[in-house]
């Protein structure tokens, strides 16, 4: 009986490794899970989900962006994971995201925003990790500069803070 289970497990691992041959298999989170991606994704580390702790997110590649937002005073330094990298990690290239926040706010965001318009999942503001009181732990921010093609009102409702779950539609 245990042999059969082992063989099946091996087989399952084999199949999974073949399916995700061209990308790293997502490793399981070790710390506290701060982001869960569900829905139509290619890479998972739990049944139907991709779960991330802070270290996993930082490992995807951090960038530093100086920008102003409508909810902060003046230009501020933010650090976070480019949305593009996060999407690549779960194998999403197009479609829409439904982003759910801790305060029960939710908004639909096109994947295009993350890939093309440089929307970034911020973890740090002014060198410190974002707390829930400061709109943390994760905050989707669109850099506002000359290259930004989106209108203020579009950016406004999509800049979700206190992100908890991302649902790929």
């Amino acid at each position: 009986m245990s042999i059969v289970v082992r063989i099946l497990t091996c087989f399952a691992i084999l199949v999974m490794s073949i399916m995700s041959a061209n990308a790293d298999i997502l490793k399981a989170p070790e710390g506290k899970v701060i982001l869960t991606i569900t829905g139509n994704i290619k890479h998972t580390n739990a049944p139907g989900e991709a779960r991330f702790d802070r270290e996993m997110l930082e490992a995807l590649g951090m960038v530093s962006i100086d920008t102003e937002t409508y909810w902060t005073d003046g230009v501020q330094k933010f650090e976070g994971v480019p949305g593009k990298l996060l999407m690549e990690a779960v194998g999403v290239t197009e479609g829409k995201l439904q982003i759910h926040a801790l305060d029960k706010y939710k908004a639909k965001v096109p994947v295009e925003d993350l890939i093309k318009h440089r929307a970034t999942i911020m973890l740090k503001n002014m060198g410190e990790y974002l707390t829930v009181a400061k709109k943390g732990p994760l905050w989707l921010i669109y850099p506002i500069d000359d290259e930004q093609k989106l209108l203020k009102k579009q950016i406004n409702s999509r800049s979700v803070w206190q992100i908890q779950t991302i649902e790929v539609l």
Partner: peptide, 20 residues
């Protein structure tokens, strides 16, 4: 703690940036 932090963030929203 979460409920407190979320309420705190609502104050922040009113007291910063454009809203303020």
């Amino acid at each position: 703690d979460l409920a407190y932090a979320i309420t705190h963030s609502k104050y922040e929203t009113l007291m910063m940036g454009d809203t303020y």
